[in-house]
C-alpha cells in the first residue's frame, strides 16, 4: 500500500466514530422524522401516511401560529438586546485596569448559570406577586403586579432572562477587541477622531466577523429555547399561551399528546426557519461583515 492510500485509510479510520454518529444519530433520524412528518403516528399504533396534512393543519392551528409569534418576539427582541449589552460592556472592559478581571467575572456569571433549572426557578419566583421585584417596587411605593401570571408581561420576563445572559458573548467580543492593533486608535486620535467616531469607524467594522458569528449562534440557540418557558409556565405555555415557545409546543404535541407525526412536521418547519434565517444572514454578510 502506498503512502497516500495509507494516509487516506488512516483518515477514515480516525473519522469512523464521527461518520457513524453522523449517519446514525443525525442524518438517518432526520430522514425518518421527515417521513413521520407525513404520517399520523401516536407511538402505539403503526403510523399511517396522510401526505401533507400535518403541514396544512399546522397553519390553521392557532396555538402553532401563536407559538411562532411568541418565539419570534423572544428571538428578535432578546438576542439583539443581549448582543448590544455584550458589545457595550466589552468595549467598556477592554482596557486593563484595577478590578477589571473581577468585573468581567461578575458580568459573565449569569451566562454560566442562566440556562440552568435553578435560575429558571429563581426567575419564576422573583417575578411572582410576592417576589423580589415587587418587594423592591413596594419599597418605592409602587404596587407591582404578578408579572409571570399576566399575559402582557410573562414573555418579557423571559426576554429579560435572555438579555441577562450577555456575558458569554461579551467574552467573545473582548477576545477579538484585544486583537485590534492599538495603532489604529492612535492614528485615529491624531486625525482628531473622537471616541464615538472611533467606535463606529474602527471597532465596529473590525468586530463584524464576531458579531456575525454571535448573531448566528445566539439566534439558533434562542429559537430552540425551552427550559425557562417550561419552568415559568409549569409546562403549559401560559398564561393564555403567552410563553408558548416553539420548542415547548413541539414538546407538548409530541410527548404530551403523542402526536409524533405533527411534532415531526413542526421539527422540520423549525429546521427550515433556522435554515432560511441563517441563509439570510450569510447572504447579507457580504455587505456588512468585513474581513481584513
Amino acid at each position: 500500500m502506498n503512502g497516500k492510500r495509507r494516509e487516506a485509510c488512516a483518515g477514515y479510520l480516525f473519522m469512523t466514530p464521527w461518520l457513524l454518529g453522523l449517519f446514525g444519530f443525525t442524518l438517518i433520524p432526520m430522514l425518518i422524522s421527515l417521513y413521520y412528518s407525513f404520517t399520523d403516528f401516536d407511538l402505539l399504533t403503526p403510523e399511517t401516511w396522510i401526505g401533507i396534512s400535518n403541514y396544512v393543519k399546522m397553519f390553521a392551528d392557532k396555538k402553532f401560529v401563536g407559538s411562532l409569534g411568541v418565539t419570534f418576539k423572544f428571538v428578535f427582541i432578546g438576542v439583539p438586546l443581549q448582543l448590544a449589552f455584550a458589545l457595550l460592556l466589552a468595549v467598556l472592559f477592554k482596557k486593563e485596569r484595577r478590578g477589571i478581571r473581577l468585573y468581567r467575572a461578575a458580568y459573565y456569571l449569569p451566562s454560566l448559570f442562566g440556562s440552568s433549572i435553578a435560575v429558571a426557578i429563581l426567575w419564576r419566583r422573583i417575578f411572582n406577586k410576592t417576589g423580589l421585584v415587587n418587594q423592591v417596587l413596594a419599597l418605592l411605593g409602587i404596587q407591582g403586579q404578578n408579572w409571570i401570571a399576566s399575559p402582557g408581561t410573562a414573555l418579557n420576563t423571559l426576554i429579560v432572562l435572555q438579555v441577562w445572559q450577555f456575558g458569554a458573548s461579551m467574552v467573545i467580543f473582548l477576545a477579538s477587541l484585544k486583537q485590534i492593533p492599538t495603532d489604529y486608535y492612535e492614528a485615529a486620535t491624531l486625525d482628531g477622531a473622537g471616541k464615538l467616531r472611533q467606535f463606529f469607524s474602527i471597532t465596529l467594522p473590525l468586530l463584524t466577523p464576531m458579531v456575525f458569528f454571535n448573531i448566528v449562534m445566539q439566534f439558533i440557540n434562542a429559537f430552540q429555547s425551552f427550559t425557562p418557558a417550561y419552568i415559568v409556565s409549569s409546562g403549559t405555555g401560559g398564561p393564555l399561551n403567552s410563553t408558548m415557545f416553539y420548542s415547548l409546543y413541539l414538546y407538548i404535541k409530541g410527548f404530551g399528546e403523542f402526536q409524533m407525526g405533527y411534532a415531526s412536521a413542526m421539527a422540520w418547519v423549525l429546521l427550515l426557519i433556522i435554515a432560511a434565517f441563517t441563509g439570510l444572514i450569510f447572504g447579507t454578510s457580504k455587505n456588512w461583515v468585513h474581513y481584513d
Binding site: 433520524p29 432526520m30 422524522s33 407511538l43 413541539l250 409530541g254 421539527a267 423549525l270 429546521l271
Partner: peptide, 15 residues
C-alpha cells in the same frame, strides 16, 4: 450540523 436544531432528530431517536 452545528446549525441543526436538535428537534429534527429528536422524535426518531426517542422512538
Amino acid at each position: 450540523t452545528l446549525m441543526l436544531p436538535f428537534h429534527a432528530r429528536l422524535i426518531p431517536q426517542y422512538i
